[in-house]
Write a protein that binds this DNA or RNA. Sequence first.
RNA 1: UCGGGGAUCGUCUAAUGGCAGGACUGGAGACUCUGAAUCUCCCUAUCUAGGUUCGAAUCCUAGUCCCCGAACCA
Length: 766
Amino acid sequence: MSDNFITEIIDANLREGLPTIATRFPPEPNGFLHIGHAKSICLNFGLAKRYGGRCHLRFDDTNPLKEDTKYVDSIQQDVRWLGFDWGEHLYFASDWFDKMYAFAHRLIDAGLAYVDSQSVEVVREQRGGFGKDGVDSPFRNRTVAENKALFTQMREGKFSDGTHVLRAKIDMTHPNMLMRDPLLYRIRHATHHRTADDWCIYPMYDFAHCLEDAIEGITHSICTLEFESNRQLYDWVLDAIGGWAPRPRQYEFARLKLDYTVMSKRKLLRLVENNQVDGWDDPRLPTIAGMRRRGVTPEALRQFAELVGIAKNNTTVDIGKLEYCIRQDLETRTPRALAIIEPLPLEITNWPKERIEQITLPWRADDPSAGSRQVAFGRNLFIEADDFALDPPKGWRRLSVGREVRLMGAYLVTCTDVTTDAEGNVIGLKGQVDLKSQGGAAPDGRKVKGTLHWLSAPGSERAEVRLFDRLFSVASPEADPDVDFIEHLNPDSLIVQSKALIEKALLTVDSESRWQFIRQGYFVADRYDHGPDTPVFNRVIGLRDSWSQRPDQGRPERAKASTSKSAKKSMTKRKPADIRAAARQQDSGLALAYNRFVQEHGFTEEQADLLSADRAIADFIEEALSSGTAAASIASWAVNQLLVLHRQSSMSQRPMRGKQFGELVGLTDSNTISKSAAKSVLAEMARTGRDPTLLVDELGVGKAADPSALVGEAIDGLLLEYADETARYRAGERQLMGFFMGQAMRRLKGKADGQVVRTELLARLG
RNA sequence: UCGGGGAUCGUCUAAUGGCAGGACUGGAGACUCUGAAUCUCCCUAUCUAGGUUCGAAUCCUAGUCCCCGAACCA
């Protein structure tokens, strides 16, 4: 697995002393896994592998109404097929129901949870909305004893569904809707697929998931972006209970979206239930089971996950990338076989009727160790209907009347005659082979560009071939909210060719064995329907074809102009400027500071605004101003350097004093140190609170007595060491200046001005 | 309307103040007993506007656009 923002976090955690990592893949057993899950599986298991940690497979089975054992089986099968192993770490959320129940009691004891006894509708109503505060439930202040008694009775089955819930006591006016007293437990008299009727109350996701992680010792709980808001609640629950080691943390990445398909369980389910596809493992579906049946390999899927990468951008991956991974993987692993999808008879008129010649063809032309087999050649042959043209276009290399092509591994043939039916369709060809061209080589060395695959009547068998294509005919079937995605189904996503021909050797191959049908594509013997008497092959993916134009040659149709309601209204957030103004309104000290900054010290209004929104900063600046350094310099440095530090950790928490900051800025004003040197001094000063003059000495960044001599010397050395780059620069690669500047500045440790260095560099580079 | 995220080639993804890189797609060519594969070359990007800096995709400010969140779902 390559680096990404999560591996960076893990690297940092490990450096800080975390002994090992544990991740988990936590599907709910209520549907089949799809390629989006594959990305997550590769991430979680891949991380565990990379860092020598572990990855749990955990079924998040907290909702008995939706879940079923049949899904837990299929999910395990899919994960294993993808190539991952959870060892002994197979868990179910339901394994921890007892513990969770006990934790809920602890929350009640701490006064952090209460039993509410209102209807769903009322609870929803009270929650408020975005920008609209919620209101407290009348049951919010029940006593601990009351809550404990009620919750115990809930567990004992004294109440019917929907009469009571356990809620966290947080804040009904919280800006994050999830924090408005979220539900922790609800009553559900339902039989659970594992715990049967042991329970009639079940924990909600936000309460259960973080506890599952904590109980199992998960260190990095990785989920998709839509759970970002849930993180706050995740942390709340774990902190409220406390005492975790390791304490799990949640991180979110962007889930996979693909062109020309849909990924949500709901939409997939609709396709399955409406019989628009043939079950969850229909080869056109992006489900793992479907892709397996389609003939895609786990290696290709893992390679795809790797190529797509892990980030936080909301993106849609070009399905061509998946197709590339599939082709690349199959290219190296499949033997080459002959098959004709739409046969067109070709009679070799100069070949004796009874004569059959066994032609030896290698399974792979590039690898003799792959072996070979014999294919019968005779008078009555078939070629691919597409390989003949009545009226050949420019550049046509295939067959046409009067043209010569090679029948792969056999003979050169010239078409002499064509028969058509009443409608003008070609129904048969006649031709003559050059009998001296056995093996396919021209006796006189003449160039024959076209090479066709072929089969003879006695050397072939009928087979069913299923040609799959993209499920939807547009790139973003979900883009337009006014059009049902079903409307965009590609009518040609499945074409069954029952009169295809395969060479005899393919009759006995195993189900799920994969082949390249030469010049056609990659095919797999169907996992279920294929057998010696009923050969059935699925086309995994066609070969790349730079001759015939794909139907979607041009740019894929991207999302139509999104006219959804949510897109139209511009979401204006509370602006930082407003927050600062509000701070000054609340605190007259800040307002006064603002005025002083502008009137007494000549700050620009923008500078004054930025520096007077927070007491720690405003006071710090006032102190810096007392150092006697020019106010303009202080303002500029404060805005551009100090605020960043302040954001990382408040100035009030730092050992550095305002006076020291003022002095440092003064050192640059007086040209004692360069600005870049001052930045490194500032970093150190902010950390340790030591005096700037001291640090300048210690870090050795004071300006040299004769800077240009020092600079010249350094640059001469540089140009010698980087002769290549120097030559490239002189040849015109001016963007290398940044490289030279970087090297020079590093070497000079800030003893010189950037400006001087640049001038000298320019002079010497010519 | 409130809160949380995100904007880099057509697509996905790097660059953590110092040569905007890689992959897919697309284009051109070479080779070819698969119009495949392989090889070579090429096209194309830092959301906008200001600022700081010798130097900004990266830091500061303002703006624009996109995504997610108000199930007793996960």
